[in-house]
Simulated assay, not measured.
Amino acid sequence: MTTIAVLGNGRVGSSLATALTRAGHEVTVADRSPGAAPNAARTAQVVINATPGDSSLDRLVALREELRDKILVDVSNATVDGPDGLPADLLYPGSSLAEQLQASLPETRVVKTLNTMLFTVMTAPATLTQAPSAFLSGEDPQAKQTVRELLTDLGWRKEWITDLGGIRTARATEAAILFVPHVIRSTGFTPFALSIAR
């Protein structure tokens, strides 16, 4: 059992919290009430960032002490939205939210994952008609192994998980968010994920 704090109680955070609790982990969800995020992060082994990507950096830098020596799982994408509310551009072109977080929180082990799919797939990957891919980006091998095990608890088969390497590789998966609005406009708001076919 892992003690996990989920920062963000929207659709992404709530679904991850429910699935990880069902898998036997001790999960706390931090909402926007005063002190909720520091309190949750302080007692957790793993912290999941499910806050809106355009404000994640400021929110998490404010938790620098609480995140010291913790694993921070970043599932958010930092984007500039278009008039329809869908992602239109990257907030950190030439970089990524994960890289910004790691640079700002050097004593925290950041791992990027689960950011290349519709949120429903994060906790139910086997519901797709084809095998999806989950990617890992991060500098710490032990942290990535812990996250890999959490993904397994969420239903991800080991052959569906690809370790891309260091945190810099997160800029590639974060850029994939620019596919999303076009896919949604083309096929509707139905579950999908990027997949590496072999």
Rank of each mutant, 00 (worst) to 15 (best):
A5T: 04
G13C: 05
L16E: 01
A17G: 09
L20T: 03
R22P: 02
A23G: 12
A23R: 07
G24Q: 11
G24A: 13
H25T: 05
V27P: 04
V27N: 00
P34E: 01
A40E: 01
A41N: 05
Q45Y: 08
V46Y: 01
A50D: 04
A50M: 07
P52R: 04
L67A: 10
D69P: 09
L72R: 05
V73I: 13
D81L: 13
G82D: 10
D89R: 07
L90H: 00
L90S: 03
L91E: 06
L97V: 11
L97H: 07
E99I: 04
E99A: 09
T108G: 09
R109F: 09
V110G: 06
N115K: 06
T116H: 00
M117T: 08
L118K: 10
T120F: 05
M122I: 10
A124L: 03
P125M: 03
T129C: 13
S133V: 11
F135W: 10
V147G: 02
T152E: 14
L154W: 08
R157N: 11
W160K: 03
W160H: 08
T162M: 04
L164S: 08
G165P: 05
E174R: 06
E174H: 05
L178F: 04
F179N: 12
F179G: 03
H182G: 09
I184E: 03
T187N: 07
T190H: 13
F192C: 06
S195C: 10
A197H: 13
